Simulated scan of single mutants.
Amino acid sequence: MFKYFIYCVFIVSTCHADLLSQKENKGATLKPLSVCCDIPELGDPKFLAKCSNPKLPGPCNDVQCVFEESGFLTDRNTLNKEAYKAHLRKWEEDNKGWTVAVDKAIADCVDNEPRQHLDVPCKAYDVFTCTGIAMLKKCPEAAWKC
């Protein structure tokens, strides 16, 4: 999962640079929508660093580590809903304009039981991916880059 995260950061960075060069010409694009919404970092840098050094193997372990370190899980397969909601609300306070996106993330990803169908069952991945999709769906116009 961390490889996927790094890959996404690379793609977003690359596409962001490409988008900046195309500001005058906003032509059609087939880039993934995820590059179009500039979602601020959702994780605590301290936990992101701890779970990145060394890089944990497997498709889920890095996200699982961040969720465990952040207190978002009560056990490997159970979301600590109150802790994750509180984190999203605090994030919203620090990132003005994202209220609708945070509300959607809470409704879709906390109040429901999302399943993203990773080959390996992983509650952290399910919730994290769901959150990203919800944020993308309700991306504020000010953060929209395409």
Score class of each variant (00 low, 15 high):
14 T>I: 08
100 V>K: 15
65 C>S: 02
124 A>Y: 07
42 L>Y: 07
89 R>D: 14
95 N>F: 14
72 F>G: 12
138 K>P: 02
18 D>V: 05
99 T>H: 10
102 V>A: 10
101 A>D: 04
18 D>H: 13
119 D>V: 11
122 C>Q: 04
126 D>N: 14
18 D>R: 04
140 P>L: 04
137 K>G: 06
102 V>Q: 05
123 K>Q: 05
55 K>P: 13
91 W>P: 15
90 K>Q: 11
47 F>P: 02
140 P>S: 03
46 K>S: 11
30 L>S: 10
46 K>R: 06
45 P>S: 13
42 L>E: 05
95 N>E: 00
39 I>R: 05
8 C>H: 05
19 L>H: 05
124 A>L: 02
131 T>V: 15
144 W>I: 10
112 N>F: 10
117 H>L: 15
96 K>T: 09
41 E>Q: 01
146 C>H: 05
60 C>G: 02
16 H>D: 05
87 H>G: 06
64 Q>K: 13
101 A>P: 00
73 L>K: 01
20 L>R: 00
40 P>L: 02
127 V>R: 08
124 A>Q: 03
88 L>C: 12
54 P>G: 00
1 M>F: 08
91 W>K: 07
9 V>E: 09
138 K>M: 14
98 W>R: 04
19 L>K: 05
52 S>T: 01
75 D>S: 09
72 F>I: 05
142 A>D: 04
65 C>N: 01
143 A>G: 04
57 P>E: 03
85 K>W: 02
19 L>C: 10
5 F>Q: 08
31 K>W: 12
30 L>Q: 07
137 K>D: 10
90 K>R: 13
50 K>D: 06
119 D>W: 14
77 N>P: 03
108 D>E: 14
103 D>R: 08
142 A>I: 11
20 L>A: 04
55 K>I: 14
79 L>Q: 02
14 T>M: 12
82 E>D: 11
110 V>K: 00
80 N>H: 15
111 D>C: 10
58 G>R: 02
141 E>W: 13
46 K>Y: 11
24 E>A: 13
134 A>V: 11
44 D>C: 11
93 E>H: 12
80 N>R: 06
17 A>R: 02
44 D>L: 09
57 P>H: 03
31 K>Q: 14
59 P>Y: 03
45 P>A: 03
70 S>E: 09
